[in-house]
Design a protein around this nucleic acid. Structure first.
Lengths: 239, 239
DNA sequence: CCAAAAGTGTTGAGTATACACCCATGA
DNA sequence: TCATGGGTGTATACTCAACACTTTTGG
């Protein structure tokens, strides 16, 4: 969620003293986080159903007001931990959404983030703040609260473009993976099939991967396993 | 400037009611704008010298708190008008800077913007809010207030990269210009010389320019004048 | 031995780069 | 006529995209 002040655990202590309505108060700061994972051949993001506030009952990205003395990143990690139980995602700031009418009841500037995780199943709905949480394919999101549809659009665009010029894929894959998994990831996110040989050649030429002395064994021919040499973000032309 | 609450024209009406110090208040929202222009063969940006606040006497980008019911863009345009007299720049949001210690006296989340104008001389220092304003070459900025050095870095990086994949150059050039001016702009911003023939061929192939039935006459051979077909931002691979 | 996924090279087209000379004008 | 910046084409290297068959394993 939550661009909305209503989602704050404690009510704003100053509100009783104000003459002005909350609608006309100085803007507050919130963060909202689009958490992505690849699951079942689809790009999915995690939505929570709001319990309270002007958009109660609607789906939204997990989020909430930034606290006193809190960094933006801290706020994102706190909200993420609270709503999904995840404590170690890659996160990246997207854009700040400041329309004073985006929340009909309060002027809240929301700093949008995206977060990436390697498996959807790691997120468990665990907050009393929300009615429930669930993964949705990004191409088929339900109606979203506030301006979260816009945030979603922005996040998907960023994810796609960043896949093309950074090693961000490493945050969407398990620590070790096969080449086919990497290629599949690109295909799913970008929405188009890639030529296997060309893709492999390009990636290999970059020397980003370690070939592990292991193989994934399954029903068919074993596949070599790889890991990223660097898991920190690198800006490199991938495609 | 102004990440600082001190720069607000009117004091926060709620501050008298608060028990907490301002340092520990809920974050406020500000905008700070890096205004660029090409001048004298250099990329310059406009700085103002702060009169008040914890960073009084230092140089900073013009900015200030976002008002009640105000859009972020509106706040940027208002501050820009106030500090430079400019009322019609291209503006673009960069990033939000939320370290609670970036301003030692208040927790202010600043939404950074860049703004582009076609001639530096159009900006005139005209605000009582600041001691004075002045253009500085971006490679040789003075010491800056708050975290504005970081904002500057971010803005320059964005300007360079956006020049490569959008038609953003049109906001740094006068309505009509010669090919040499366009090429010079790219050379200055990117910090490297471009091959004149290759550059012209590429740009021409994109069909972004109108050749005007005019020429710029000067001391030497007249130069054909061009204008951009679209002045609105287009995402197109330029280099 | 069959099904299924893994792995591997070459060719042709198009794109990007390097490079140098003539032109038009005002003084 | 000269100084100055404006304007133009070609040859080559490189990059990117298209394309299909062989290998390895488990069942």
């Amino acid at each position: 969620m939550s661009t909305s002040a209503d989602a704050t655990p404690v009510a704003d202590p100053t509100q009783h003293y104000r003459r002005e309505t909350r609608r006309h108060a100085r803007p507050k700061v919130a963060v909202d986080t689009v958490l992505f994972a690849i699951d079942d051949g689809q790009v999915k993001s995690y939505l929570v159903r709001l319990k309270r506030g002007p958009a109660a009952g609607k789906w939204a990205f997990p989020g909430g007001l930034v606290r006193k003395r809190e960094m933006l990143d801290e706020a994102v990690r706190r909200e993420l931990l609270q709503s999904t139980g995840l404590s170690d995602c890659y996160i990246e700031q997207l854009f700040s959404f400041g329309d004073p009418n985006r929340d009909p009841k309060a002027h809240v500037v929301s700093v949008g983030y995206m977060a990436l995780i390697d498996k959807a199943s790691a997120a468990a709905s665990c907050s009393r703040k929300y009615a429930n949480g669930q993964w949705f394919e990004v191409a088929r999101l339900p109606e979203l609260a506030y301006d979260h549809a816009e945030i979603a659009e922005y996040a998907v665009r960023r994810l796609k473009s960043k896949l093309e010029y950074t090693n961000i894929a490493c945050s969407l894959l398990p620590p070790t993976f096969t080449f086919a998994q990497l290629e599949e990831l690109y295909g799913i996110v970008l929405g188009r099939a890639l030529d296997r040989r060309n893709f492999r050649r390009r990636i290999m030429a970059m020397n980003l991967l370690n070939r592990l002395p292991l193989e994934r064994r399954g029903n068919h021919r074993p596949a070599a396993l790889y890991s990223f040499q660097q898991r920190s973000l690198q800006v490199i032309e991938m495609l």
